[in-house]
């Protein structure tokens, strides 16, 4: 862990106004490093997802900054912010959000197509990522024909297809049984994480805690503590 991939400082986010104003995140600061698998753990409503959204350039904080490559991402305009997400961040959503009307291969190719690669080139590259997650033979099937674990792997292939530096997983094991969940995270740790990549996982599934390098515990919008683990 050499240089920080993300430096968040003084992040504050509230929702509502006046009487209905509710703080989701209250002045959170931390650094995350390349080659690290960092977990954010905490009960529902603790602000995990809000923090994750601010770090990934999705939700604008009311105060604070997120520095990536010496630049505050929240100083970027809407188009630059979209480019940041496309080029620097890969998302694996809790419900995967795969397109049921597209094939598995086309789903994986979406970030490549957004990066303006030609159709055939995007498909060729997407096939490589599908192969990396062991689903080459499922390329032409629609995602609905795949099992939960396979869909999760498709979502991972899509997330890494844009070769992002930061990978964001939102509750990656929430829809999976214990064994499959562990296998997926193990696969991610062994095959996806590398020295040029930082992985942030939001979870409250303690069955996968063993894979984390660090676990940040959140409660009521603040970090209650950071635990170093490592496997």
């Amino acid at each position: 862990m050499a240089e920080p991939a993300v430096r968040a400082s003084g992040l504050v986010k509230w929702f509502g106004e006046a009487d209905t104003k509710t703080y989701a995140v209250r002045g959170v600061s931390f650094e995350a490093y390349f080659g690290e698998m960092l977990y954010i753990e905490g009960p529902s409503g603790s602000g995990k997802t809000t923090l994750l959204s601010m770090i990934s350039g999705i939700l604008r904080p009311n105060a604070g900054s997120v520095i990536v490559e010496d630049k505050d991402i929240w100083s970027l305009g809407p188009d630059q912010l979209a480019d940041f997400r496309l080029n620097k961040v890969g998302f694996v959503f809790q419900d995967y959000h795969l397109f049921p009307r597209l094939t598995t291969l086309e789903n994986v190719a979406i970030p490549l197509i957004l990066k303006k690669l030609g159709w055939d080139e995007a498909m060729d590259k997407a096939m490589e990522y599908l192969e990396a997650v062991g689903l080459k033979d499922r390329a032409q099937l629609p995602p609905v024909k795949l099992s939960g674990g396979e869909q999760q792997r498709v979502a991972i292939a899509r997330a890494i297809a844009g070769r992002p530096d930061i990978l964001i997983f939102d509750e990656p094991t929430a829809s999976l049984d214990g064994d499959t969940g562990r296998r997926i995270v193990d696969f991610v740790k062994k095959n996806i994480l590398n020295e040029k990549r930082f992985i942030l996982i939001v979870t409250h599934d303690n069955r996968i805690f063993e894979y984390a390098d660090r676990i940040m515990r959140m409660e009521d919008g603040t970090i209650m503590g950071v635990e170093k683990t490592g496997k």
Partner: peptide, 16 residues
Amino acid sequence: LERFGALKAIGARGRQ
């Protein structure tokens, strides 16, 4: 809608 939202999150620009 959720998929369009996902596209936005992935990095699609509004005009795309």
